[in-house]
Simulated assay, not measured.
Amino acid sequence: MSAISINKINKTYPGVTPVRALEDIDLTINPGEFVALLGPSGCGKSTLLNLIAGFEKATSGTLLVNNKPVQKPGPERGVVFQEAALFPWLNVWENVAFGPKVAGKSKSEYEDRAMEMLEITGLSAFLKHLPVQLSGGMRQRVGIARVLTLGSEVLLMDEPFGALDAQTRLSMQELLLSVWHKLRTTILFVTHDIDEAILLADTIYVMSARPGKIATKITVPIDRPRTIEDTTTEAFNSLKREILKQIRH
């Protein structure tokens, strides 16, 4: 059974001049797969992610997560945005525990899971820190730990490292690889950064300009585990050149 199955999805925004954002999208993601969605700005990457998250509805087509139609947002689909959107008055622990607590779970039900997610995201020493006391990268770690604590089966990430400086972005990419290797959560990662897509993903779907279509599906041929050093290899740069040509075209 596929984790995410998309068949002939179309999305048109109505108006005096309707905007056709997505056209005939077909996409399948297997359980535990790391998939990157790559393409030029305005091609509909975030729109597709929002449809999967349940924030928007498709104009037509079929969209299933774990073989169930997506009707609305749900805890089985965790979303990480470019901004961590933490509660500024809550400390790290309180932000991470907020979801299960609001869902009515007792502390004994979520405490171990929350502590494990804080540990694997490198936050164990920062439980009492407020968001204002953390760097941008650390705040994103809290956002990722918060979603993982919910036990989401699918992680949807919309350019989560796009607002970070280059050095912090690289460290967050390595962190995400480490977390994924440990948990094997299904991840759909939206990015416009070719290097990031190749480094992180098993499979890359390249989208065309609006109306967004799946132009190419690429299986990344670079062995795992991967590190930042892999971005300097000829295999990496050869694939990068190929993808760049497709996006320009």
Rank of each mutant, 00 (worst) to 15 (best):
residue 205 Y to H: 10
residue 240 K to N: 07
residue 56 E to G: 06
residue 245 K to F: 13
residue 126 F to T: 02
residue 162 G to C: 09
residue 80 V to H: 09
residue 73 P to S: 08
residue 82 Q to H: 07
residue 163 A to H: 07
residue 30 N to T: 15
residue 187 I to S: 00
residue 216 T to K: 14
residue 13 Y to V: 12
residue 62 T to I: 14
residue 222 I to S: 06
residue 41 S to T: 00
residue 38 L to I: 05
residue 240 K to S: 10
residue 199 L to R: 04
residue 236 F to H: 00
residue 213 K to E: 14
residue 247 I to H: 07
residue 209 A to E: 14
residue 3 A to N: 08
residue 34 F to Q: 06
residue 178 S to K: 13
residue 173 Q to I: 09
residue 65 V to N: 11
residue 152 S to E: 07
residue 123 L to G: 03
residue 201 A to H: 11
residue 126 F to Y: 13
residue 97 A to F: 09
residue 20 R to I: 13
residue 22 L to I: 02
residue 180 W to K: 05
residue 186 T to G: 00
residue 172 M to S: 05
residue 215 A to Q: 15
residue 185 T to R: 13
residue 25 I to N: 04
residue 204 I to Y: 03
residue 100 P to M: 08
residue 64 L to N: 10
residue 116 E to W: 11
residue 13 Y to P: 08
residue 189 F to N: 08
residue 239 L to P: 00
residue 10 N to D: 15
residue 180 W to I: 09
residue 202 D to M: 04
residue 31 P to G: 06
residue 161 F to E: 04
residue 231 T to S: 04
residue 77 R to Q: 07
residue 244 L to I: 14
residue 137 G to E: 03
residue 128 K to F: 06
residue 149 T to N: 05
residue 127 L to K: 12
residue 37 L to M: 11
residue 206 V to Q: 07
residue 120 I to L: 12
residue 158 D to L: 05
residue 87 F to S: 01
residue 83 E to I: 07
residue 86 L to H: 04
residue 200 L to H: 06
residue 125 A to F: 06
residue 150 L to S: 14
